[in-house]
Design a protein around this nucleic acid. Structure first.
Lengths: 185, 185
DNA sequence: TTTGAAGTAGAATGATCGTTCTGCTTGTGA
DNA sequence: TCACAAGCAGAACGATCATTCTACTTCAAA
């Protein structure tokens, strides 16, 4: 577990907001420390470099989505209900919080090297998300859960990107109906 | 029409390659002029600022895709055939050229301001692409061409992003089959 | 009681950013 | 012939980049 630290939490929270809203290479350490209410020394005490803060930001987004899915999984009584909760959870998440696209896709756009820690973290997130969907689809008895799971991952990508570039009002309903269609087979 | 200039063409071609492969904020003018075989003075003679070069890069990508679709449209004898050529054209384009994601989505990730010229150019491209698809779908007599056209735009987004992050071998076939399914209704 | 880690504040590093400048050469149209 | 735009080469601008540093304070555990 990461050590508890108010300053670290403040910095990471501010960085998450700014990185998502304005991009990663576009914001400097000056912005990060001033908006985080933290000094440069404190920054580099907790993160060896800016890249490490970026990786922590990606892993934080990953953890948030895992929590979202786990909440749905424990709340549901059937696999079908769990799938429905996942779809609804993603929809409200897109409409309310992730209005600037997919944090993982956006980060990947800025890091072309697939071996960079940020890209590795993005890959890990996508693999977890897909395998979790495949498990749910298998439990629900869907035909070809592997292909359906992959299709749902792509659908979520499209929904997040589309909500950013075309607006959520058109895209989110389209995502919900297409997701149902894909699951129903 | 833009004035003919070897140096300008060289610079724009090199910039297109580098921006797409490595990102936009990540590459400086030094790289652009050295890889383009052009001096700084020539750079700023043709483009008032780096932002203008970025906009030219986006518009160049837009023009290339318009050419791709127009080639398919003139080659096909029926609307159904034209749609098929579009799907196949996008597929081979993703597998062969656009292996680093969607240039428009990637650029949008780096430019949060929706009024920025780059974002305006991206929006114009997406609106043209969607309306062109809707026209084709209307000619082909598909039910609800507006919704189907929008779904196809999202599918292409997902295919480009997925091919970059998960690999084209899994994603492109999935794109083709889902596109057919959406058109068939 | 004391040691040390964690915090604040701010100066300073060298590198790179986008942009502008001075000179010199070349080719083309008036 | 000559004027001028387009190209070359490279220095220089101030600003900002990520990172490191010194100096002082606070506070909890040993």
């Amino acid at each position: 577990m990461t050590k508890a630290s108010e300053a670290r939490d403040r910095l990471l929270a501010a960085a998450g907001e700014i990185f998502y809203r304005e991009g990663i290479h576009a914001v400097g350490v000056d912005r990060l420390v001033s908006e985080g209410g933290v000094t440069r020394a404190t920054f580099y005490r907790h993160f060896p470099s800016k890249d490490d803060l970026v990786r922590a930001y990606i892993e934080r987004e990953d953890a948030a989505l895992r929590a979202l899915l786990e909440a749905g999984a424990t709340q549901a009584s059937t696999p079908e209900e769990a799938l429905e909760l996942v779809i609804q959870g993603i929809s409200t998440d897109i409409a309310q919080h992730h209005t600037r696209g997919c944090p993982f896709i956006n980060a990947a756009a800025e890091f072309p090297d697939s071996k960079h820690p940020v890209r590795v973290a993005v890959k890990a997130h996508r693999e977890w998300f897909e395998s979790t969907l495949v498990d749910l689809l298998t439990d629900a008895g869907v035909d070809d859960p592997a292909a359906t799971g992959h299709a749902l991952v792509l659908l979520r990508d499209a929904a997040l990107v589309g909500a950013y570039l075309d607006g959520p009002d058109v895209v989110v309903p389209s995502f919900v109906s297409t997701a149902h269609q894909v699951i129903a087979d």
